[in-house]
């Protein structure tokens, strides 16, 4: 069973850690870009008639005689969208990458729910195959876990761009979009992430791969069967081809990391061999949430 009692205990532990330190880091209680009735000072602007006098900075007026209005960062509950890749490539590996993806989704969602954020889950392969609507409150965790547990790898053609296109058209608030996938998208993962960025979502990548994908060991005459498309390719795999493959794969991984770095996105790359709690802690450490 993927989500058992121990799993729930681990979620609770992670949520406790995150409650103390997560503020303003990854999830929940995040400052929005909207200025308004928050308590945290943001900057000044000149007074214009009609402004609330309560927000005038009288200290500045006393010193310099300028009428400046204090602006505050408005705080709001965050909307977190989890885009979980359910393509058949995610069923690859031992344990399957899809298991870790669901565990990570559950953990991050629990943390968000614990911080009174709203979360929604979009399961996709070649299209959105399941949707866990926006919800709030820790009491929704069990239904969320049931939702995740029912998911299975399926679909024949992953296309993140098409998914994001339909996802972004939804009339919903912008927020954090956590994409959990292997990003093995023949059409390129960048288009989907670009769309997210352009639609003012904040993408965060959790990329999972199997070590056998990074370092395959097969040699000789082989028929490679694509797990997603069932297409067969006859190849003669030599040591040289293996070296080339590793080079291509490493380039791909570096490309993913570089993309995240280029656009200031959170990017976590992992294999399916790590435990989900270790992965969550690592993400926290990376974000400076824990030491």
């Amino acid at each position: 069973m993927l989500f058992d009692g121990d799993f729930l205990k681990k979620l609770e532990y992670l949520s406790l850690i995150s409650r103390r330190v997560f503020r303003g880091s990854i999830l929940a209680q995040r400052r929005t870009k909207q200025m308004g009735g928050g308590i945290e000072f943001a900057d000044h602007r000149e007074y214009t008639p009609g402004d609330d006098f309560r927000h005038l900075d009288w200290n500045v007026y006393a010193r310099h005689g300028d009428l400046l209005l204090k602006r505050f960062q408005e705080e709001e509950d965050l909307h977190v969208y989890f885009l979980i890749d359910c393509s058949r490539s995610m069923g690859f590996g031992n344990p399957p990458k899809f298991d870790l993806a669901r565990q990570v989704t559950a953990a991050l969602a629990y943390i968000a729910l614990s911080n009174l954020d709203r979360i929604g889950i979009i399961a996709y392969s070649q299209e959105i195959i399941a949707d866990f609507p926006l919800t709030r409150g820790k009491d929704r965790i069990l239904s969320l876990l049931r939702f995740l547990e029912k998911l299975e790898p399926q679909g024949t053609d992953t296309n993140l761009g098409r998914i994001v296109n339909s996802f972004a058209l939804r009339p919903q608030r912008r927020g954090l979009a956590v994409v959990i996938s292997d990003l093995f998208d023949p059409n390129g993962y960048e288009r989907g992430l670009d769309l997210l960025r352009h639609r003012t979502y904040e993408p965060h990548l959790v990329q999972i791969h199997d070590p056998a994908e990074a370092r395959p060991q097969m040699l000789g005459e082989i028929e490679l069967v694509d797990a997603e498309t069932d297409s067969v390719r006859k190849v003669t795999i030599t040591e040289r081809a293996l070296r080339e493959y590793r080079k291509v794969f490493d380039n791909f991984q570096a490309g993913v990391a570089g993309y995240g770095k280029k656009y200031g996105l959170g990017c976590t790359q992992t294999t399916n061999e790590v435990d989900f709690e270790d992965l969550i802690l690592r993400m926290m450490r990376t974000a400076g949430a824990v030491s």
């Binding site: 690859f92 994908e213 097969m218 000789g220 005459e221 490679l224 694509d226 297409s231 493959y245």
Partner: peptide, 29 residues
């Protein structure tokens, strides 16, 4: 021997990329 060993992989996109680089020898292959 024509019936080769079948091996499922999560994606052939990387293999395609690798093999495309060897296209000049494809006739020979």
């Amino acid at each position: 021997k024509i019936r080769l060993r079948r091996l499922p992989v999560s994606t052939v996109m990387f293999w395609t990329q690798v093999l495309e680089e060897q296209n000049p020898r494809s006739i020979w292959q």
